[in-house]
């Protein structure tokens, strides 16, 4: 406790330094861009990017694009979580299936599955279904792997306590295995979200259809570089929202145990 107080006396709180560093970075960027040290055409100053937001809102339909991308990524992650946790549980439950297929799922995690989008495009058509499907494909492997890892890592002593109380397999899962594995499972869901967002925006960008991905592609093609940076800032905002929501859900789940 004493050392913590000493540290806090020596250094400002991390959050102050963090926003100070961010402000310094933005100021340096603004100065470098204005002074011509970096090309203002390729990397416009932050003030110009900020000014482009009005155009993004009024002319480019930013709110609709944002909601669309957010909705697609969330739908993909939700669907992916249901399927992924079920498959992860099965791979944990059946040791043989786990031995046989876990390596395959791991290989899938690093396989460029997003390249399958032309197939999905022909099957589902050029619409949101293709984009959501690609999001699901992207988020499944980490959710499956982390669910299995979490369930495998439950301490034997906890399971033995459950057995001592004569719990049924379902109650053993609900009261012991799942809560104990929850942090790891949620870690998987978070990585899954990351992959879902990447796939959703990536496919939107590649097929020039849908929300923020399409918008950034259009702006890039028209060399509206400042507005394009603005679009990228909003993509970051989508990610922040996802992290915030999953963090809240995680806290709620852990506190309700």
């Amino acid at each position: 406790m004493a050392s913590a107080t000493l540290t806090s006396l020596r250094k400002p709180p991390a959050i102050v330094t963090r926003f100070g560093a961010l402000a310094l970075f933005l100021l340096g960027w603004e100065a470098a861009s204005r002074a011509g040290w970096i090309s203002a055409f390729i990397v416009p100053p932050p003030s110009e990017i900020y000014n482009s937001f009005e155009m993004l809102f009024v002319q480019e339909g930013l709110v609709d694009a944002f909601l669309r991308t957010f909705g697609e990524a969330f739908a993909a992650a939700g669907l992916g979580s249901v399927i992924g946790i079920a498959v992860g549980y099965l791979l944990h439950r059946s040791k043989l299936a786990g031995l046989a297929y876990t390596d395959w799922v791991a290989a899938m995690a690093s396989a460029p599955l997003v390249l399958l989008y032309p197939l999905f495009l022909v099957v589902f058509g050029r619409n949101s279904a293709t984009i959501v499907a690609m999001g699901v494909v992207g988020c499944l492997p980490p959710i499956i792997l982390k669910t299995k890892e979490g369930l495998d890592g439950v301490k034997p002593v906890l399971l033995n306590v459950g057995r001592t109380y004569g719990l049924t397999p379902w109650r053993q899962f609900r009261m012991i295995q799942f809560p104990a594995a929850l942090p790891t499972i949620f870690n998987g869901v978070r990585i899954g979200l990351l992959f879902a967002i990447i796939n959703v925006v990536g496919v939107e960008y590649l097929i020039v259809f849908g929300g923020l991905g399409q918008m950034i592609s259009d702006l890039g093609d028209r060399f509206e570089i400042a507005a394009m940076f603005g679009g990228i800032v909003f993509v970051i905002l989508v990610s922040v929202c996802f992290f915030f929501i999953t963090e809240k859900i995680e806290t709620w789940l852990l506190s309700s145990k």
């Binding site: 990397v43 990351l194 967002i197 990447i198 925006v201 960008y205 991905g213 990610s239 992290f243």
Partner: peptide
């Protein structure tokens, strides 16, 4: 990290 890096491609 969760930002789709493909959006940086035009730059």
């Amino acid at each position: 990290a969760p930002t789709p890096k493909i959006v940086f491609l035009p730059i």
